[in-house]
Design a protein around this nucleic acid. Structure first.
Lengths: 240, 240
DNA sequence: TTTGGTAATAGGTCTGACCAATTTGAAGGA
DNA sequence: TCCTTCAAATTGGTCAGACCTATTACCAAA
């Protein structure tokens, strides 16, 4: 097989890169330069198109992709808003889960989530700073102060766990686990008349905090497993 | 506030909102129904637009988003091709990371991957059947029979790990870990002149197999950690 | 058989228009 | 003054048609 590539010396391979890709780069640089934070609004598509010298179609293509990646959120009539900050060096790694025909989706998803959650606790125990500790403790105390312990759900519980993810100092943990929690919230039909549902995991929150405070990765793993095993029991008991 | 909507009885309000979302659903159903596999080509955008009764813009919007998620790959002049199969029930969890370089990206991704991989090994140790065991052993023997141990890369190594994921009897493990491996393959630039690269993890493959064979979840976790810690060392050593 | 060119195919971009939801702000009434 | 009401401006969503560029298929000539 002869090599038909005619690589003539001194001839550029020709840029050829697509418009929408360039626009994404430009938007990323703009967001970075403007120090935009989540919640900020981007300029209108028409203005961006004119400023970059491209058609609105190309702007929309780029915005559409960034929206699919969870970076931007266009709202009709309001504008396009930033959900997560990015820079020109941001790397995207989209994951997808096929839940079709998956029985016991919650249990199977929880198993994967447990692995990630355990690793996050281990990382938090290794890397937590004093500042992380303060935030975790504040969230824990607020959660414990509520009359009815919320256990495995509710904003106070969420805040505590988010503080752990942040203490791991690996943003992937928070991003992934937030989406796993969304998945649970979407398929979790909380049984009526049981306000104490998913509260068995309550005591493990403090022991987990203590493990991370003491920088004991092994104990952090154990307590996280106890916590999630308790959630697993609740899911199993939920079934009709 | 009066209702000015002229809702004529018998006329459907027609969800004009979210065309691209509808198109994505339709495409997912189509791909599912046609039993398309990675590498297959989708119908031309113009045909899809006509078939669905929407403008090509809406088709492009949907394709653009699916491309950003790594599902489709449009090639100029050739057509749009399927990279990963999806169904109507696929959930997407895109991640993004601002990295301080390649090493940082790989280490952060490996940390998450380790959590999932550990949990998969534990599940495999608990649930593996005799049949799983046969497949795992065959893959292990084939891998060991190669003159140069491949260690953390290569098709033989991949086959062994896939057999473990399957032995966990939770399809989410394989789905997620395959995508993590894709990521590593994409950014992992194997250094020249080091054919034995990433081979330090080689001996742990057998010990991991034995742990799963003996249905020892704790040992399976330990061996998996050793294996991935070895990979971590390789990444750290990768620096120029 | 190989080469070279032409037409058909298919994604990429552009233009301009209109639709629908939201926001804004001024007119009007309590 | 304060609030309601409503029309206009703003902004993202969709549509239509055209043209460009890259790829592929096919056919004719050497």
């Amino acid at each position: 097989m002869k090599d038909r590539k005619k690589t003539i010396a001194g001839l550029k391979p020709l840029p050829q890169q697509g418009r929408s890709e360039q626009v994404i780069k430009a938007l990323a640089k703009f967001i970075d330069r403007q120090k935009m934070v989540p919640g900020d609004r981007l300029p209108p598509e028409r203005d961006l198109a004119e400023a970059l010298g491209v058609a609105r179609t190309s702007i929309r293509e780029a915005v559409s992709q960034l929206a699919a990646l969870g970076i931007l959120e266009p709202r009709i009539g309001s504008g396009t808003f930033l959900l997560r900050t990015i820079t020109s060096d941001t790397v995207y790694m989209p994951l997808s889960l096929d839940t079709d025909g998956l029985e016991d989706l919650l249990l199977k998803a929880l198993e994967v989530r447990r692995g990630i959650e355990v690793e996050a606790s281990i990382a938090a125990a290794k890397r937590r700073t004093e500042e992380d500790l303060h935030r975790m403790e504040a969230a824990l105390l607020h959660m414990e102060s509520l009359f009815k312990p919320e256990g495995g759900s509710g904003p106070a519980d969420l805040a505590f766990h988010l503080s752990i993810y942040d203490a791991a100092h690996n943003p992937l943990f928070r991003q992934l686990l937030e989406q796993f929690r969304d998945l649970f919230q979407r398929f979790w039909t909380r049984p009526y008349g049981r306000p104490d549902f998913a509260s068995n995991s309550f005591p493990y929150h403090r022991t987990l905090f203590e493990a991370i405070r003491d920088q004991d990765p092994h104990k952090a793993e154990q307590e996280t497993r106890k916590l999630l095993n308790s959630v697993e029991d609740d899911i199993r008991m939920m079934k009709p």
